[in-house]
C-alpha cells in the first residue's frame, strides 16, 4: 500500500484542468466510501444512544451503555474471543514462518510458483473450507477414523468438533496463507548480504538468524499477525458451524442481537466497542504494511 504514498509526484502547482480530472477520478470512489462505509459506521455509533424497539418509538438515552457495562458475561466473552483470535494469529505465524523462510532462502527460482501453490486454497469457498473441517473433526470424521484405525483411541472422540479447539484449528486453516504472504515479502526484501557480513564476523547461523533475519522480518510478522487478529475478532460464521456452545465468540452475540434478540442498539454498541478497541491495531497494521512495501 505504501507504494501509493511513496510515489514521487513532481511538485508542481495543479492547473484547473488537473483539479477537474482529479475531482472526476476521486469523486465517485470517495463518495461510495462516505455513503456506504463511513456513514453506516457513523449511524451505527449514533444508534448506541437509542432505546426502544425497531419501528416503535425511539428515544435518546445512555441505557444501552449501562446495560453493556453491567453485563459481565459480555465482557468475559469479548476477552475469550480476544484470546481465541490471539492464539489463532500466533499459531498462523508459527506455522507459516518456516514456510516463508524455506521459500525465500531454500526454494530458489521456484519460490513464486510454490508460494502460489499454498495461496490457492485460500481463494476457494470460505464456507466450504469450514465444512471440510466438520468432516475431518466430526465423530465419524477423518481424524477419528484414523485414530481408531491406528489404535490410538478405543472409541471415537466426540469432543473434536464443537469446541474452542475446533474453532481455532479451522480459523488457522482459513487464515494461515494470509500470514505467509507478508512474512515472505519481508524476508524477500531483506538484504541477504547482511547474513554474509554476519558470518564473516564469526556469527554462527542461529545467531545471525536471531539478530539479523528475525528482527528484519518483524514488520512482516506484525502485518501477518494483525491481518488475522483484526478480522477474526468479530468472526461469527466459523464458531456457528464448528464451535458449538463452548466455541461461541463475541461476533456470534453481535449477530444474535440483530437476528434473534432484535436488540439493535446493544448490537451496535458491541460492534462499536470492538471497532474502537481495534482502531489502534488497525493504525499499527497500516504502519507495518507501509514498512513492508
Amino acid at each position: 500500500m505504501a507504494t501509493l504514498t511513496a510515489q514521487s509526484v513532481p511538485e508542481t502547482k495543479a492547473t484547473p484542468a488537473e483539479k477537474r480530472r482529479l475531482l472526476l477520478l476521486m469523486g465517485p470512489p470517495v463518495l461510495a466510501l462516505l455513503l456506504f462505509f463511513l456513514l453506516p459506521l457513523g449511524v451505527m455509533a449514533l444508534y448506541t444512544f437509542q432505546t426502544g424497539t425497531l419501528g416503535g418509538e425511539m428515544s435518546w438515552s445512555l441505557e444501552t451503555y449501562g446495560r453493556f457495562w453491567e453485563n459481565t458475561a459480555l465482557h468475559r466473552l469479548l476477552w475469550r474471543s480476544t484470546v481465541v483470535s490471539f492464539q489463532t494469529s500466533l499459531l498462523c505465524i508459527l506455522l507459516s514462518y518456516p514456510i516463508a523462510y524455506y521459500l525465500v532462502f531454500r526454494a530458489g527460482d521456484r519460490r513464486m510458483t510454490l508460494l502460489t501453490l499454498i495461496i490457492i486454497p485460500a481463494w476457494t469457498s470460505y464456507l466450504l473450507r469450514i465444512l471440510a473441517w466438520k468432516l475431518i473433526l466430526g465423530t465419524e470424521g477423518l481424524l477419528n477414523t484414523f485414530l481408531l484405525w491406528a489404535g490410538w483411541v478405543d472409541e471415537p472422540s466426540p469432543i473434536l468438533l464443537f469446541s474452542k479447539t475446533a474453532v481455532i484449528v479451522t480459523l488457522v486453516y482459513v487464515w494461515v496463507p494470509f500470514v505467509a504472504l507478508p512474512i515472505f515479502a519481508a524476508l524477500e526484501r531483506m538484504d541477504k548480504r547482511l547474513l554474509e557480513a554476519a558470518a564473516d564476523l564469526g556469527s554462527p547461523p542461529w545467531y545471525s538468524f536471531l539478530r539479523v533475519t528475525l528482527p528484519l522480518s518483524m514488520p512482516g510478522v506484525l502485518a501477518g499477525f494483525l491481518s488475522v487478529f483484526i478480522p477474526t475478532l468479530g468472526e461469527y460464521v466459523t464458531p456457528l458451524l464448528v464451535g458449538g456452545v463452548n466455541g461461541i465468540m463475541y461476533g456470534n452475540l453481535i449477530q444474535d442481537q440483530f437476528v434473534r434478540a432484535l436488540n439493535w442498539p446493544l448490537g451496535s454498541l458491541m460492534s462499536l466497542v470492538m471497532l474502537v478497541a481495534l482502531l489502534p491495531l488497525f493504525l499499527l497494521f497500516r504502519k507495518s504494511d507501509q514498512v513492508l512495501q
Partner: peptide
C-alpha cells in the same frame, strides 16, 4: 481487514 460482522450490521 475490519470484521465482517461490523460492516454487515452497520450497512443493515
Amino acid at each position: 481487514v475490519i470484521p465482517a460482522v461490523v460492516m454487515g450490521v452497520a450497512m443493515l
